[in-house]
């Protein structure tokens, strides 16, 4: 009866510190009851409520692919005033936490088939895009999609997350990888430049293409004009929003933007939808 708010038990199998500042960690979670994993059917772009007993719950995007059926990945940034994120970061491997979800809508994977995919990500908001890339590049799926271009940027090389995977993807010839940083460092040999600028340089074709964009609000704001210039129509630009959430199921009211609830009607919106929402500020 109280299933709605009842988190399922998972164990932290592994944690990976993703950045130099050591405040972004990826948690590999395994359900105590494997049946629960099977019931936990999700798609790329969705999120779940992670809960630490005594600290509370926090909405976190799912970073693993739906095809990673052994585990779930969540990449969490710890904030000084974030009760749950701080609690999560202090947990050791083997600790038990709760997962409730999956919630929200997802990227239109079906509509993306037979199309060129342009993925633009910034900073730590790359998580659900990572889920998507893993999904698209999976042996079972790759052939269903045309060209895949990934543009990912962070402020500094130390802030790039999923570094080993980025390298793997760069080595593949069926994906065009562009990794950039706002500010380079001495041993950084890669690109330096803001995501919107690199996007204009790379200039992926908009023909038969869909763009997925996810990043901090300021990046979203400046990425939209170049995408439009490249010929992407607003309904072909897909993005994901973030707001403070509490219930995850469209009831508690705090992620309300216009008549939509980000947690339920989102977090994935097309740029067209977004422009019609008050308060979205993109």
């Amino acid at each position: 009866m109280n299933d709605l708010y009842h988190p399922r038990s998972v164990v932290i199998k592994k944690t990976v510190i993703e950045n130099e500042a050591r405040d972004i960690k990826t948690f590999e979670l395994v359900f105590l009851d494997q049946e629960e994993r099977e019931k936990f059917e999700f798609s790329c772009g969705q999120f779940a409520m992670l809960s630490v007993a005594g600290a509370g719950e926090s909405p976190i995007g799912i970073a693993s692919s739906p095809l990673d059926d052994e585990y779930l990945h969540f990449t969490v940034k710890r904030y000084p005033t974030g009760v749950v994120t701080t609690a999560l970061h202090s947990l050791e491997e083997g600790s038990e936490i709760g997962v409730r979800g999956p919630y929200g809508n997802f990227y239109p994977l079906k509509a993306m088939e037979d199309k060129n995919i342009v993925i633009v990500g910034g900073g730590f908001a790359f998580t659900t895009l990572r889920s998507t890339i893993r999904y698209l590049l999976h042996d079972k799926n790759r052939s269903r999609f045309k060209d895949i271009t990934v543009l990912y940027g962070a402020r500094t090389p130390g802030e790039l997350i999923y570094k080993s995977e980025l390298k793997q993807w760069e080595e593949r010839d069926d994906v065009n990888m562009y990794v950039t940083v706002d500010r380079g460092e001495e041993d950084w040999k890669g690109r330096v430049g803001l995501v919107p600028n690199i996007l204009s340089e790379v200039a992926p074709s908009s023909e038969n293409s869909i763009a997925l964009v996810c990043g901090p609000p300021i990046m979203l704001k400046y990425t939209m004009p170049p995408l439009l210039d490249l010929g992407f129509s607003p309904e072909r630009i897909i993005t994901s929003l973030e707001r403070r959430m509490s219930c995850g199921i469209g009831k508690c009211g705090r992620c309300n933007i216009g008549s939509k609830y980000i947690c339920k009607d989102g977090p994935v919106f097309t740029y067209k939808e977004l422009r019609e929402l008050p308060e979205a500020a993109v």
């Binding site: 809960s51 005594g54 509370g56 509490s246 219930c247 508690c252 705090r254």
Partner: peptide, 24 residues
Amino acid sequence: CHCFALLDEKDKARVKRIRNWDSC
């Protein structure tokens, strides 16, 4: 008005997940 917040509270023996009204 029906907005709410979920939060945890610990006491000696257990953790309670509480739903409180909240205000926009």
